[in-house]
Write a protein that binds this DNA or RNA. Sequence first.
DNA 1: AATATCCGCAACCGCGAAACT
DNA 2: GAGTTTCGCGGTTGCGGATAT
Length: 305
Amino acid sequence: MAAVTKRACNPNEEEIDLRRGPWTLEEDTLLIHYIASHGEGHWNSLAKCAGLKRTGKSCRLRWLNYLKPDIKRGNLTPQEQLMILELHSKWGNRWSKIAQHLPGRTDNEIKNYWRTRVQKQARQLNIESNSKRFLDAVRCFWMPTLLQKMEQSSSSYLPTTLSSQNSASPSLSPNCSAPSISLSTSPPSKVSQIFEHPINGNSSSVRSPSIFSSDSLISQLPQTSERLTSPTHAFDHTVYSSSPALNDCYYVDTSSGYAYDMEGLNLDPASAICDFNNQQFDCQMTAGDWMLDNMTDTLWNMEGM
DNA sequence: AATATCCGCAACCGCGAAACT
DNA sequence: GAGTTTCGCGGTTGCGGATAT
């Protein structure tokens, strides 16, 4: 039951009972129908004209975060999680800006994801979520694991003729200035949304932002052949090798058929050991290191990661 | 089975920027 | 240019379901 408060916007106006709390189906219907026929904007007058005893602010929030038709619901895909991690490393808590690059996702949803999932992991590791250390952790383990899931999903999801080709695997292209999660072959038919590289964009696909620049976190991921020594590590050369078609950079969202959750990921601790010869990052893994100590029971077994 | 605790998410709040008068 | 209104953003809260005890 939504709370009701007495409020007078203007001393001359009669007091209006303003509802608060969860929206009812009736209110949702009113708002949807009103916007369908009159459009959105001018939220305060919209609330009054639609017969909603809500603030314009509340109506706007309800519409943008929940009722808008193109809102995508369900778990964030690995691709989306990866993009959030990447963009947050660049922009910080600019949720709305980050959300602009994730069609169908709201800033509120992304913010909640960051606070409930990402910051939780940082807390469990006793490191600041905005610290370089945590960024390294994200870069060295979280992102590769997401990429692994993307690789696996694309392999199982795409037709075998496609998935058997290296070029069809999501590839990290260190030199790619556009989204570096790429498919260099024609996008599969089941791909729901494709962000094309700007120089190739010629369809109705949503244009991708130019993220994942050369100095981005992803481009700083350790090259598999150089730094990942475990034979069981899931990242083979197809993940990190340069795509022969660097210009063909797609962001592939397979969410239409999948609902991934980090919690479902299971990374063998042994496979997470890095040997960073170049020591570019301070997340070198040796027995007794802070991260290794923690990874079996927090971040790196992916329970809750 | 009952209670406590945890967790995710929708909704609210305060503030600053932009638009309008 | 000043004052007011509207909009949008980021931070926070609180509810309800899930899980643990």
